[in-house]
Simulated assay, not measured.
Amino acid sequence: MWNPNLHAALWDVREALTTQLDTEHLEWNYTHLPYALTTVNFGKQTVCDTHMDDKDFAFMQSVLKCFGSFDYRKGGHLLFPSLKLAVQFPQGAEAYFPTARLPHANTRIGPSEKRYSITSYSSGGHFEWAYRGGLHKYGWQEYLRTHELEEAEDARDAERPALLTERFFPIWH
């Protein structure tokens, strides 16, 4: 496991969602993956312009897979414009990257070719809900007001990005 802390956090959130009375009847897409969501793109030519998936959990690497009958040397490349990087992405390839933080796209393929993709990810909302004790954003804000904890929470919010980056993107020496 290349990122055990992130993997554990994903499973923790999955377990929190699974054990709720409102959601215990729902089935997961996969039994062996901790991701809550999967998008399957079966258009004839799955091509996406440069974007970031800002609803995904920002500290998570999503999984992207591609399939189809296309010449991966000529098209279907995975693009990371901010890194000035194009990666050949052949059929069956799998990429893990932070879709909410890293702009990405893919190149067009030939007119008679086909390309499909499957992406697995978890939304930031799932993490927020789990770490707020099952409260949505407005319920959490009401809880903070009721218990006069808004200032303390603001201070924690300022520290959270650095703490999460350190936890989920460790620097190995």
Rank of each mutant, 00 (worst) to 15 (best):
K65R: 14
T46H: 09
N41Y: 06
F59T: 02
V47L: 07
G75H: 10
T23M: 08
H25G: 07
R73F: 05
F42V: 03
F59N: 06
F59K: 01
V47T: 10
G68V: 04
T46Y: 02
D49E: 13
T23W: 11
E27L: 07
G43T: 14
D53R: 07
F42E: 01
V40D: 01
S69E: 15
N41T: 06
T38D: 00
Q45P: 01
V47S: 01
Y35F: 15
V40H: 05
L26Q: 09
E24G: 00
V63L: 15
A58M: 04
N29T: 09
Y35S: 03
K74G: 03
G43W: 03
T31K: 12
F42I: 02
F70Q: 08
M52R: 15
F67H: 08
V63F: 04
Q20F: 01
M52C: 14
G75P: 09
A58T: 02
C48N: 13
D49W: 01
T46V: 10
K65G: 14
H25Q: 11
S62T: 05
T50A: 13
K44Y: 02
W28F: 09
K44N: 11
D22A: 14
E15T: 15
G68L: 04
T39C: 05
L33F: 11
V40Y: 06
Q45V: 04
D22Y: 08
W28N: 08
T50S: 11
T38E: 06
T31I: 03
K65D: 02
Q45K: 12
D56A: 15
N41M: 06
D53N: 15
T50I: 14
T18R: 12
M52G: 00
N29W: 13
K55V: 11
K55H: 14
T39E: 03
V40P: 00
L26S: 04
F67I: 03
K44Q: 11
C66A: 15
N41V: 04
S62P: 01
E27M: 05
F70A: 09
G75E: 07
L26W: 12
T39N: 14
A58F: 02
T46W: 00
S62I: 01
Q45N: 05
L37R: 00
K55S: 12
F42S: 05
D22Q: 12
V47E: 06
K55W: 11
D56Q: 11
L21S: 07
W28K: 10
E27W: 03
D56L: 03
L17K: 08
K74F: 10
D54P: 03
F59H: 15
S62D: 14
K55Y: 13
W28H: 09
D49R: 07
T23C: 09
D54T: 15
E27A: 09
Q61W: 15
Y35W: 06
